[in-house]
């Protein structure tokens, strides 16, 4: 870590910062709704910041601001030049800059959520940007999606399957989705949600709170060493 605290260009291999949580997934699966729900449930107990990446400029940031779940100044929008996957994986510079800007302005923070623009099943966050990542699917995309796998479904630290309230209308079998997801995810957790019916998303919020606590614990015990928090979900 740099000894000069005025220097904003420090390397990311430092625990002296908030946990960075990436939330990715296809268009319309409920990423922004999940971010809003997490802000609503965790906002009272954690110091939060949010970075949105959206090909349609500030639409997601505006949605969150209107939802009134977080001080609008704590939501920063990043333009990705038509390349949402590039901005979270291959060239994360603009997102890192946005995260550090939030930490500089409002820090110390406990959690910075980086929401990706809607993309396909191969989009994942670079470990240089996100310490932990959630991939969000929805049942209306079809119950075969978990079986198709792809890096988002197989490697995300948490897989969220949203819009369970629509399952009966689109003929999606949640048991099949659960079984297929478990088969390709090697024991990593999967949670089913209906953000419309349960806007507090208790189970996801509990998982996020758990990884933030692990991060804080690691920070307290190894203040200068890089480490990855363990997830106990």
């Amino acid at each position: 870590m740099s000894a000069n605290h005025e220097d904003r260009h420090q390397s990311p291999a430092s625990l002296d910062r908030a946990l960075r949580l990436g939330i990715g997934g296809p268009v319309g699966s409920g990423k922004t709704a999940l971010v809003a729900a997490l802000c609503r449930t965790l906002g009272p107990v954690l110091r939060l910041g949010v970075v949105t990446n959206d090909i349609y400029t500030t639409e997601d940031a505006d949605f969150l601001r209107r939802a009134g779940v977080l001080d609008p100044e704590r939501i920063v929008a990043v333009q990705t030049g038509c390349c949402p996957h590039t901005a979270i994986r291959d060239d994360i510079a603009a997102n890192i800059d946005a995260v550090e800007t939030l930490e500089e302005r409002f820090g110390p923070l406990d959690l910075v959520i980086v929401e990706s623009g809607g993309d396909n099943l191969t989009a994942t966050f670079s470990r240089g940007l996100a310490d932990q990542q959630i991939f969000v699917l929805d049942v209306s995309g079809g119950d075969k999606v978990p079986r198709k796998g792809g890096p988002g479904v197989t490697t995300a630290d948490l897989l969220v399957v949203n819009k369970t309230d629509l399952a009966k209308h689109v003929g999606a079998d949640l048991t099949v989705m659960s079984r297929d997801a478990a088969a390709v995810r090697d024991g990593k957790p999967v949670l089913f949600t209906s953000i419309r019916e349960v806007p507090e998303v208790y189970a996801v919020a509990e998982w996020v709170h758990g990884v933030v606590e692990s991060w804080a614990h690691a920070r307290a015990h190894h203040p200068h060493g890089p480490a990855v928090p363990s997830t106990n979900a």
């Binding site: 333009q79 990705t80 030049g81 901005a87 060239d91 603009a94």
Partner: peptide, 11 residues
Amino acid sequence: SRLPAGGHGHS
């Protein structure tokens, strides 16, 4: 253009 320095976001 693959240099990871945010260039892809500028036109």
